[in-house]
Each structure stands twice: as structure tokens, then as C-alpha cells.
Design a protein around this nucleic acid. Sequence first.
DNA 1: CAGCGAACATGATCGAGGTTAATGCGCTTG
DNA 2: CAAGCGCATTAACCTCGATCATGTTCGCTG
Lengths: 244, 244
Amino acid sequence: MSNAFIERLRGHAPLSDDEVGLLTSACGNIRELKAGHHLIREGDKPDPVFVMLDGWACRYKMLPDGGRQIMAFMLPGDFCDVHIAVLREMDHNVVTLTKSRVASLPQAQMEALIQTRPAITQAFWWSQLVDQSVLRSWIVSMGRRKSVERVAHLMCELYIRMHNIGLSTGDRCEMPLTQLVLSDALGLTPVHLNRVLRDLKQAGVMEIKGGSLILLDPAKLARIAGFDDNYLHSRADVFFARTG
Amino acid sequence: MSNAFIERLRGHAPLSDDEVGLLTSACGNIRELKAGHHLIREGDKPDPVFVMLDGWACRYKMLPDGGRQIMAFMLPGDFCDVHIAVLREMDHNVVTLTKSRVASLPQAQMEALIQTRPAITQAFWWSQLVDQSVLRSWIVSMGRRKSVERVAHLMCELYIRMHNIGLSTGDRCEMPLTQLVLSDALGLTPVHLNRVLRDLKQAGVMEIKGGSLILLDPAKLARIAGFDDNYLHSRADVFFARTG
DNA sequence: CAGCGAACATGATCGAGGTTAATGCGCTTG
DNA sequence: CAAGCGCATTAACCTCGATCATGTTCGCTG
């Protein structure tokens, strides 16, 4: 079975067989987790670095009033957090959203890799930069896009990310997120999100059914979202451009 | 004259005199820039890495409809962008907001530092992690805080960041941002931001006057914002906690 | 010191999205 | 199969912040 994490890094940095071997053994400790398992809690002292091999997770903060804001979705191949002994205390939570396979890389091993393997450091750095880029694009969405555009944009992003790791099938991909989870990510109420999803379905643009996202009209979806995949800094071909 | 950038890194990673020397010479190329000078434009191929030594800058994206979303403010000591030859193309713009002093570190030199100096790599990494943390907190603000809270939170953040680099004086600090700029950062209209600022002043909480932010009642401001400075991961004492 | 443009200020109105509440529907579990 | 729970769905109403319109103030320059 291939390792989604290593595959993803290889796609963007020239790793030698040697280095792939090092990473593989660093990922030795793999756990199966149920949905709803917390990998990281606010206030934790960071220790091992977690990597998603399979399944979905999210990063979130709670507010005093009980509200929740999701700040990122982690898909197979993504780091949960590359804190590497630098921060003293986690400032947010990370929880699985589906049954997942997660590798944990001990801090010491991470540091050793970084200090001895420039190619691996570069791969990690690339991953950090892409994560930042996604965070920035979320800020743009929340600040300046209205609800339909926001929903459409997130769906484009998630579809492309799934596509880039080989987890799309034609015009659809897995979408295990409940409307509650999506609304916590989009800064909308579940009620309003539901309305938006209904409208998008009725307009023949996209729909979420049976745990799958179905792009009925990808080009139109991208147009509504104002989607430009440059911020994902991937080298994969662009689905929306092809079909638009 | 001390170098704000190096001071900041030293506060968070154990740099030897040797390493400080290397960084100092890497910052050799320093330019004075006027307000409104673009350091980075969307579509640019990234080359040197810019560092703010003095003055304010911001990172932003434009939307098709002409709207602008600011995604970060850079203060003295901050990296503008640690892209390091990893990304092929910038996905956003960076522009100075005031007269500034900016150092540019050639890519080759950045890479050399990272490949030979683990302490410097760690300092850079820390800086990246803090930047990410700030991005996440902005997402929380935009998604779940209403306008007054949002304004209050940004003011807390900027005050603390200025405080942490020694640029606050008692209950005030420099605040060269126009209401238009602030509203582009907060995802509000200038009109509404103006009302919020009026309310905060009338409530005796804070005011912006003559290019300065004045905290009339820091504890109250922090309470309105729901501000917790843990996300800034600084070791400085906390102004709001002291006075609250 | 007149004239001008940028930034600040404020009133009136509108609408996207929040709030509340009720209903349905599919799953699990006893 | 009944009970119960989490999630999806829809309707009625309300509010926060956007929009539109119109000054005003400040700082600069001729």
C-alpha cells in the first residue's frame, strides 16, 4: 500500500529513494482512528507530528459563545501540524471527521530529517507554503465573497485537492462533510448553508448526495466562485479550465 | 542601528554571534521605499525574500469585482514572504503602507543559510508558524465575530505586535492605517467601520487619532474582542492581562 | 489663503444572512 | 419494530451591515 503523504511530497520535491526510505520508516507508527478522535487539543504541548494517510480531519477553534470556526480541512497526504518543537502550546484543535489512518512522526525524527536532508526540508517547506496559501484564500472568501460564491469556492478547492491526490472520479469525489461541519468552515449558519446548497442544486451547478460531491456544471461552479487554482500551487492539470 | 528582523528572530531562537553575523550580511541590501510601493505582484516569479526593517506593509488580493482583501499586515521585523524558490508564481500582492526600510535577501543566500544553519532554519520556521497562526485567527474573526468584536480584535493584535517589538508607548502605538485600509482587512465597508470606530470611542474603549491607536480601556477592549494572545506565540508579558 | 483631493463622518434605506422554530427522515439501538 | 437521535429541510421573521447619498474636515499646493 502506498503512502499518500510521501506521494504528495514526491510530487513537489525531488526525493531520492534513500530519502523516501527515511520518510517511510519515520511513518512507522500508524494508527486507525474513528471519526471524532482528537489528534490535537488547544493547550497541548505539541509532541509528535501527525500526518493523514487516509480519511478527513479538520482544524478548528472554539469561541467563548460556543461557536466553532473550522480553519482547515486535512485530506490524505496532509500534515496536521508541522510545529516541530517550536511552539510551546497548541492554540487550536484537530479532530478526525471520518474513520482515518494517521501516522505520527516523533519530534526527534522530524528534527533529524530537517537537519540532515535539505530535500526533505524543502518538501516540508513547500507543504507549509501551500497551507498558508490556502489559509489566505479562505480569508478572501470570508471577507469578500458572499455565501453562494463562498460555498462554490470551497467546493472547487476540495474537489481539486481530491483530484490532485487521485481521489476524484470524473465529475465527483467523496464528500463526507455534514452541513453542520461545512457551515462551521464557511462562517455561515447551517440553515443558510442549506438554502445555498438547494439553490446550487436547482441551478444544476452541483450537489452533495450520498456522501459525494457531484459537479453538474464545473465551469459554471468555477465562474460563480471566481475560482483560480493558482493558490494551490499544484502541478496537476486543471479540471475547471479543461471543462470550462 | 539595530536590525528589527534579527532582533525578532533572536527573541525566539538561540542564534550564535556567528549566525547573527551571517544574517546581518545577508540583509546587506537595504532600500528606502515610499508608501504605496509594490514589493510583490501577483504573477511575479518569486526572487529575493523581503524583510521589513521599518514601516508597515500589507499583503492583499484583488477580486474580479474590484474589491480588495488584505490578508496580513507586516510590521518591522516581519518577513514579507518566505517563498524560497519553492513556489513558481506569487498568488498575491505586497505593498508598503508607509515610508519603509526594506531588506532584500537573495534567494541563493536564503537557501545557503537554511542548508547550513539549523538554528536559522528553526528561527525561520518559527516565524512561518506564527504567521500561520495569525492567518488562522483572522479566519476566526471573519467567520464568527461581528463587526465590533472584529475591529477590537484586530486592534488588540496590532497593539500587542507593536508592543512586542518595542514600538508601543504606554497605552498607545502608531497606527498609520486609514479607515479604507482597515476596512479592506476586516471585510467591512468603510462606512460601517467608521460607525464602529465612533461607537468604540464613545464607549471610552479606544480611539484612533492623529495616526495613533489609543487604548482608553485595554481590559474592556480585550473583553469585547474575546482576545487571547496565545496565538501570537510570543514570550512577552501580556499587556491586556496586566491591566485587566 | 484659495482651491483641491483624500480621508473622515453621518443619515436613510435595503437586503443577505441570522434566528427561531417546527417537521421529516434515515440510522442506530434496545 | 419502537424509540430516539443526529442531520437535513423549510418557513416566518428580524437584524446587522451593505448601499446610496451627502456633507465636512484636514492637509497640501499654487
